[in-house]
Amino acid sequence: MSRVSLRHRLAERGIDRNLLLLLPAAVFVLTLFIYPFFYGVGLSFQPKRGGPLGAYREFFTDAYLRDTVWTTLRLSLPAALLNVLASVPIALRMRGRFRGRRLVTTILVVPITLGTVLTAQGLLNFLGPTGWFNRILMSVRIVDTPVSLTHNYWGVFLSLVITGFPFAFLLVLSYLSGIDPTLERAAATLGAGRWQRFRRITLPLLAPGLATTFCLTFVLAFSVFPSAVLVGDPSGTTRVISIAAYDAAYVKYDYALASAVAVVMGVVELVVIATVLGGRSLLYTGSTSGGKG
């Protein structure tokens, strides 16, 4: 009898045999995500020399490694910011129904599926010194010598925009479509102009969504790897932190250092995300649909 009543008591709190359905997924995440993560953290404190903090000391004293943090932020923050800010006015135009809306969104999804590798190859062909872009600029006499846009900062930046902008746009568009348009109409009947409606109604409701979008776009841009190698200048201006991690693991076979770099990378990313989301909690959160009546 007592077994039955224990089962009853547990079931009342929501624990019963059906929860076993969660088991495979939980075991999976624990063994393939959490365990490797802590294994990596542990590894980063066991370098071959220099005591438990040796790998971190090596990272922060070697300018070639330390500067990768700054290089990565210098690429990913402006790219993510541009992607989000450019999405807002375009999404404002495109909400609601119009002919070809589905076509536009479909075309915008294409770059997401292209992936960074193909985008890199395309950028090398298109923006290179003999590519179409420089040919057009030179034939209309804007410049005399080809603009150098590949194998430097701008090549990587543009590849981040091409892959990141559509993603940011689709997110912003879906957040914007979730805002009840009657709210803005109510403001309009009360005499608010276009700018006032945006500033006082739409923007405050959209801001939390923008913060989330910024975080997700930033994560994409922060882990830039293939394009930084292929269209960038991987030993100089675009030596991002993931290249440093890869180098440590697969070129120098120093797994302690590689794990330390990965940990630093995760921490830097989480700091940025926490800052943005912490700012978000100061903003309005709640329903974006208008009440009835």
Partner: peptide, 13 residues
């Protein structure tokens, strides 16, 4: 998380 951050420890394991 970006794939590289957990990818390297995962690959090591």
């Amino acid at each position: 998380m970006p794939p590289i951050t957990y990818g390297i420890p995962l690959a090591t394991v």
